[in-house]
Write a protein that binds this DNA or RNA. Sequence first.
DNA 1: CTATATTAATAGTATTACTATCGTATGTGC
DNA 2: GCACATACGATAGTAATACTATTAATATAG
Lengths: 223, 223
Amino acid sequence: MKNLHLQIEINPELYSKNPDSSELGRKVISKSIELIDEMGFEVFTFKKLSLAIKSPESSIYRYFESKHALLVYLTSWYWTWTEYRLVFAMSNVESPEERLKKALEILTQPVTIDNSISYVNEVLLSEIVFSESLKSYHTTKVDDENKRGAFNSYKATVRRVSEIVLEVSPTCQQPHMLISTVIEGAHQQKYFAEHLPSLTDVTNEKNSITTFYTDLVFRFLKT
Amino acid sequence: MKNLHLQIEINPELYSKNPDSSELGRKVISKSIELIDEMGFEVFTFKKLSLAIKSPESSIYRYFESKHALLVYLTSWYWTWTEYRLVFAMSNVESPEERLKKALEILTQPVTIDNSISYVNEVLLSEIVFSESLKSYHTTKVDDENKRGAFNSYKATVRRVSEIVLEVSPTCQQPHMLISTVIEGAHQQKYFAEHLPSLTDVTNEKNSITTFYTDLVFRFLKT
DNA sequence: CTATATTAATAGTATTACTATCGTATGTGC
DNA sequence: GCACATACGATAGTAATACTATTAATATAG
């Protein structure tokens, strides 16, 4: 990983014009990540983005047909990138238990170090995914967007980690439920810790969310 | 329970005028439950509600200052009512394990039988809570609304069941995380089963979600 | 230096989420 | 039978949002 410059390819169904193909497109991505992280997806508008990048709103619409399409693009980017992180972290780790443990770390912790030299700030992007990705699939158009492949990279990630679960415990009947519960749970617990702390038991100590979900998974798999 | 007519008292901070105190107010509640269940919260508007109940939009605003306030009211109603269900289900059950098992059923299954003689359709309301309650606390105003008590009944439910967890396993360090994970997880898995099935392992058999989360909890607590 | 891609500039629309004002109907206490 | 409050109706209007449409300017590539 590190400074290895890997190319994240996004399903063309998820944009009108590839933002990676022009300067304005890249500005749209990097500035929208900043703004959404800063003010939240609801408050974020293309109008505000257009002011921030000093380009008219209509130019943004050439890349994304809606602000929702932009969120879907961003989360899709994140999960594609996370698949690479998983593959990299798994390489040279023999023990399935160790592999699963490492995978759970990647899934339950927001990114803290931005190694990228690209226009995507992965630290902020992971914050967005943790707090806003729910909104990417929780709409009336899910089924349509799902058909167009909007959630392929998320589903692929869940599938990949589920396979590790099966290596650890071949008799596990619900590996997908387990992993999607862990991912979504970790996102929510972080949010609860910040806003509704009585719904969690998050402590001062670092990584209490990762610890909890790692315990949860391994105790579930231990028969 | 059954036809016992219990009065659900809602925190006055959560409405402008008590909808339970007038006919129009009760119509607002019962019709909004129908409409939100039917079309989803995003698509639902006070305009549509006003047409459905044949009253002007401005009359609805006398009861709720925003459509979001209405959703908060509805989910709050649900959790207050669910606390009663829990208390009722726990009575006369001695074993903490049995109590926890029963509580998990109540938390992970949508309601199927409407025993109520009131204007609140509990079957539809539970559907709304399962699919839309996320939106009640996932906003930029959470902290404000939390201070005003918007989520008290949800938090009380989590606390109550967490106490049962501690009866079963007094050494458990994260009872709140465990229960909020189960509640939110069950809601999401139901949604995934309907829209993104590859994220679940939900089968034909009835209650596979309840089975999974019950296993998850008891295996977590078994040391 | 011309064709092509790319962006700027401007304007406009339907809908949403709300606010404001005023008027009427209905019953209740005295 | 009258004061009076409560409840509801009717109408109008506003700021912001999420788009769409069109045309003109500019950069770049061959």
